[in-house]
């Protein structure tokens, strides 16, 4: 019993640091890069993904014996898409500002590789409780990564912290937390303007997103190495949720990653 409890805890915590989906497994990069122009946006995206992830993990785990193996990926996609639609409706209705700033990336949670990846790698094989915890842990890890990116980009790019908080809290009514709507460092420290220190708008642009992610990745790599871990890498099949339906073409998938296999080998495998 004690051992089981310990492993439950392990399944929960692994997603937060050790196997952080964004920083360690390099999954869901599109969403991470696109929406993290501010902390509030990143947090909103993280929460949406976490909800979808936990719900779909639970349902897929419940249905894992009912879903035939051959059509499991389409089945998973239907489950995930249903929950994404639900979340989309809720966000549209209650947090319209978030819906606006996430834009197309809200429906695109469907193809977020974290979710399909967890369904394929974990929920389709494990019990309900463990799967839910796994989803929750991975979701928190994703949220944390998004928040970290959001804080850095918002601070450097706009000189603010947590702006737009009220739009996220509008679900709970007006003026929650005393109407706190983030800090504008240019208002708190007026001398910044006198020094003609401008925020680096570039950090809010796409290129700043890539740059921040790269630097964060370098830092996490360094930390992981110090702990004796491995560098984060896009390891073709390992992180690709479609690896399984790539069929027997695993060798091809690998060769695509390395792009080193001779063409004849590819053809032989395709036959």
């Amino acid at each position: 019993m004690a051992a089981e409890k310990k492993s439950l805890g392990k399944e929960f915590t692994k997603g937060i640091i050790k196997q952080n989906p964004v920083m360690r497994l390099v999954l869901g990069t599109c969403a991470t890069l696109a929406v993290t122009t501010s902390l509030v946006n990143g947090f909103g995206m993280g929460i949406s993904v976490t909800i979808v992830l936990v719900c779909s993990n639970i349902v897929i785990s419940l249905l894992r014996k009912a879903i035939p193996n051959k059509i499991r990926i389409p089945a998973y996609i239907v489950v995930i898409a249903s929950f994404v639609t639900l979340v989309q409706m809720v966000v549209k209705a209650y947090v319209p500002a978030l819906d606006k700033s996430l834009g197309i990336f809200l429906p695109l949670i469907v193809v977020n590789c974290i979710i399909l990846g967890r369904a394929e790698a974990f929920a389709g094989k494990n019990g309900v409780l463990v799967s839910a915890l796994d989803g929750l842990g991975m979701g928190i890890g994703f949220t944390a990564a998004c928040c970290a990116m959001g804080i850095i980009r918002e601070f450097l790019g706009g000189g603010t912290f947590m702006t737009g908080l009220q739009s996220l809290l509008s679900v709970f009514g007006d003026g929650v937390l005393g109407g706190f709507d983030g800090i504008d460092f240019y208002k708190v420290f007026p001398f910044l303007e006198k020094l003609s220190l401008q925020p680096m708008t570039i950090m809010l642009l796409p290129s700043g997103g890539f740059f921040t992610f790269g630097v964060l990745m370098a830092v996490t790599n360094r930390l992981a190495e110090r702990k004796g871990g491995k560098k984060a890498e896009l390891n073709g099949c390992g992180s690709c949720p479609m690896a399984a339906i790539c069929g027997a073409d695993k060798a091809e998938c690998e060769s695509m990653k390395n792009a080193a296999a001779p063409a004849e080998k590819k053809e032989a495998a395709a036959e």
Binding site: V26, G208, F210, F211, G214, M217, N221, K231, A232, L234
Partner: peptide, 11 residues
Amino acid sequence: EGLPITLIAAA
């Protein structure tokens, strides 16, 4: 080395 420089190049 690896991903970080790739991302910075993408930037």
